[in-house]
């Protein structure tokens, strides 16, 4: 009996040791893949793009958003982004400036053209919908390693190729997600699909990223992103029409002085 017990204990500890080792290995592999994703996308400098959003209600009613965005890569910190809203017409002239930080809260400002006021806004909670769409602010912020814990799950065929499936657990306690799962294309390490799980761990949204194009021989960018909310039946298409790199923008184009001048 005693022998049996000790054998079981030994077996049990062996099993858990093996489990542990696999888990650690999977976390290391997950991080390595995420690192490779980040490295491959480093050095793009600055870019500008035209973006449309099509918001679709559960009943199929559509409304449209038009905006222009500019982005600046920042070494050693989160990226800077400037968004100018063109449609709907009542928000035309409104501008949004974001200085992302991997671990600290982002710095955010809004320019309100009716009052000509630059208003700094609290950014702790990034879970709010962006322009009434199915994209939350946190879905649109730059990919930073410090924002998540990574865990490699498996390889899986996806689209025309093969994907790494990585589980990402947000480090920010104010994130609206318990976890996200990303399918990264093995050829370019960019996501093809991301699923989002709410704080109760049920499936909330699925993001599909399509029409990848290569820029500057190195940087892959999707041109159609579809976010589907499984709990409400609503969806949003984000269409990127034109991406330009090397637009000559510097940090001076991403401060509050420039925000006032942004047109």
């Amino acid at each position: 009996m005693r022998n049996y017990l000790s054998t079981s204990l030994l077996l049990l500890s062996l099993v858990s040791a093996v489990n542990c080792a696999t888990l650690l290995a999977d976390e290391a592999k997950g991080l390595a893949i995420a690192q490779e994703r980040k490295n491959r996308d480093a050095g793009w400098g600055d870019s500008e793009s035209l973006t449309s959003m099509i918001l679709r209600s559960a009943g199929g009613d559509e409304s449209r958003r038009e905006m222009r965005t500019a982005a600046l890569e920042v070494q050693g910190d989160g990226d800077k982004g400037l968004t100018l809203f063109d449609e709907p017409r009542d928000v035309r002239g409104t501008a949004f400036l974001n200085h992302a930080h991997p671990t600290a809260e982002d710095d955010q400002w809004l320019y309100l053209p009716a009052l000509k006021r630059v208003k700094r806004i609290a950014s702790r909670n990034k879970s709010g919908p962006f322009m009434g769409s199915e994209f939350a602010y946190e879905d649109l912020s730059s990919f930073e390693l410090a924002k998540y814990r990574f865990n490699y799950l498996r390889d899986e065929p996806c689209g025309d190729g093969q994907c790494f499936v990585i589980e990402q657990t947000p480090a920010d306690e104010y994130s609206s997600y318990s976890k996200t799962v990303a399918w990264l294309d093995k050829t370019h390490y960019q996501p093809i699909k991301v699923t989002y799980y709410d704080r109760k761990n049920s499936l909330l949204k699925t993001l599909s990223l399509e029409d990848y194009k290569l820029y500057l021989e190195k940087y892959w960018r999707p041109h159609k992103l579809t976010m589907e909310n499984h709990q409400t039946g609503k969806s949003t298409d984000l269409l990127i029409h034109n991406i330009r790199f090397n637009t000559g923008r510097t940090a001076a184009d991403f401060d509050t002085n420039a925000l006032q001048r942004a047109r």
């Binding site: 050095g43 400098g45 070494q75 500057l216 090397n246 510097t250 940090a251």
Partner: peptide, 19 residues
């Protein structure tokens, strides 16, 4: 190598534009 790629290595910080 491309000139762009080399320039990203030569760029001291983001205050300097790629151009």
């Amino acid at each position: 190598d491309t000139l762009w790629k080399l320039a990203t290595q030569a760029r001291p910080d983001d205050q300097v534009a790629m151009v």
